[in-house]
């Protein structure tokens, strides 16, 4: 079960800022969340994701541990 934390538009789209989702990988997690709220599908793919505290840009195939903590955060621009 992954504990998911949302920021920005996702909170409105999912109606909550936190959620637990049975998923063993980011790919599975995004699929599950996209089914739950198709409108958020694109945003989920664009966002940076912190997995157990470590930021991943373009995360997709990363595996999720049993009590993984996943946080969707705005993509990090750079100068």
């Amino acid at each position: 079960m992954a504990r998911v934390v949302f920021t920005g538009d996702l909170i409105r789209q999912f109606g909550t800022s936190e959620l637990t989702v049975p998923a063993r990988s980011i790919k599975a997690l995004i699929q599950a969340l996209s089914q739950q709220c198709p409108e958020a599908a694109d945003t989920l793919m664009e966002m940076a994701i912190s997995i157990d505290g470590e930021i991943h840009q373009q995360a997709f195939l990363e595996k999720l541990s049993e009590e993984a903590e996943v946080c969707f955060i705005p993509p990090i621009g750079a100068g």
Partner: peptide, 10 residues
């Protein structure tokens, strides 16, 4: 430390 954007610092 957990940063304000949710990531735990390495």
């Amino acid at each position: 430390t957990v940063a304000p954007y949710g990531a735990k610092f390495p």
